[in-house]
Design a binder for these strands. Structure first.
Lengths: 211, 211
DNA sequence: CGCACACTGTGAACTCGTTCACACTCTATA
DNA sequence: TATAGAGTGTGAACGAGTTCACAGTGTGCG
């Protein structure tokens, strides 16, 4: 389900983080960085940074470190699909709107092309610049719009049906906010992002760590 | 920063997930489960389930498996603080409201006691049943209300300052939605939940996994 | 000119979470 | 009463990701 490419999930996450940091450096007019500088900004070890950059195939020099612009370019070609990827969001509640706002225009290579909701009041409306459709058109739209990624922000009880519909339309990746383990065929990647679970984890370690 | 207790983060997450599943079983009137049943619902291996339950100190029987009610009780005493823990939410945007709605009343042991925002229009208002305060009272309220956990839903640029204020007030755990690595003293646990990073990860693996 | 230094790239060692595999226990059946 | 079967508990093996440690390389300074 995961590292079919030989690249670890954690590595991809960190690379995504580096890109954000590097964008900030570029903005600030900084031309090059050393691994230990990225390391402290990212909160990981310097060796880790070098390893990650190694998986990109990019090389720095001991004298000037890594070129910021070149490294960003290298990350872009690693993370992004050349022609971008289409995304849909299912479930336009508070969470859905938050997610939509979060992404609009931020990642040009990830295009939010449609929203879905069960509420008829929302059908046809344009929210955050994207049209909302009835949820039963999910499979159809995913197929016709060539969508590869679905963000699932519906209640737990509905999540599996939504996931099935997404997969039926040809989606290859699901970002799942519902607190259930989705059942998908091999070749479909699911990332779970359960806030309640995360909060309980924080609560646990907040209690145990020195308190 | 993490497993100071000897218990892995992943284990705590799974235990939290089991509790949700078990609550459903209890609801359905099911009295006992076997590890392989939990395993398929949770999407992990049966051996994993048994290992996790072992860390709880609970024991089942080969004949009847695990008692649902007893196992829940065991998880409760593992995850929850006897007197509960107080939580604040900083940043009442779409995301903040989504989080607030998500939690209200769902976890009696985690009490959302205050909201904070920089927007003066929100000060004094009651949102999702909780009062919103000006953000500069953060440290003070965290201390006076004995808050141990802060949920940070502010923009990246403000997140470090918010985290500092939380730590100054005595918070021991932070659930961070901002896309930055927070700098906190040892003994404070930070969990990062960056949606953009997660989405990019899904995009990457959606592309690589068989497509 | 040559030495000391700082940083990268990377094989090897290590850590730690997961899986394996099996001894043990109890029930059901003949 | 003996036997087959199903499931738990757990030491040991495994494997993936991280860290270590050092060779390689170019710069700057004495």
């Amino acid at each position: 389900m995961a590292g079919l490419t030989g690249v670890a999930e954690e590595t991809v996450e960190r690379i995504s983080m580096y890109r954000v940091l590097l964008a900030g450096l570029l903005q600030a007019g900084i031309k090059s960085v050393f691994s230990h500088q990225l390391s402290t900004s990212a909160g990981v070890s310097a060796a880790q940074v070098r390893r990650d950059i190694m998986t990109l195939g990019y090389s720095g020099s001991p004298q000037h470190g890594y070129g910021v612009a070149e490294l960003i370019e290298s990350i872009d070609s690693f993370l992004d699909a050349p022609d971008g990827q289409n995304v849909v969001l299912v479930g336009v509640g508070n969470l859905g709107r938050a997610v939509a706002n979060y992404f609009i225009g931020r990642r040009p290579k990830l295009r939010l092309v449609a929203l879905f909701d069960v509420d008829p009041d929302k059908h046809g409306r344009v929210i955050c610049g994207v049209r909302c459709h009835p949820q039963d058109r999910l499979t159809e739209v995913i197929r016709s719009e060539n969508v590869s990624i679905a963000i699932v922000g519906v209640p737990a009880a509905a999540a599996q049906a939504v996931a099935d519909a997404c997969v039926a339309g040809g989606a290859r990746g699901i970002l799942n906010f519902a607190p259930v383990a989705l059942r998908v065929p091999p070749g479909v990647y699911v990332e779970n992002l359960d806030m309640a679970r995360s909060l309980e984890k924080v609560a646990y370690f907040a209690r145990k760590a020195g308190g």
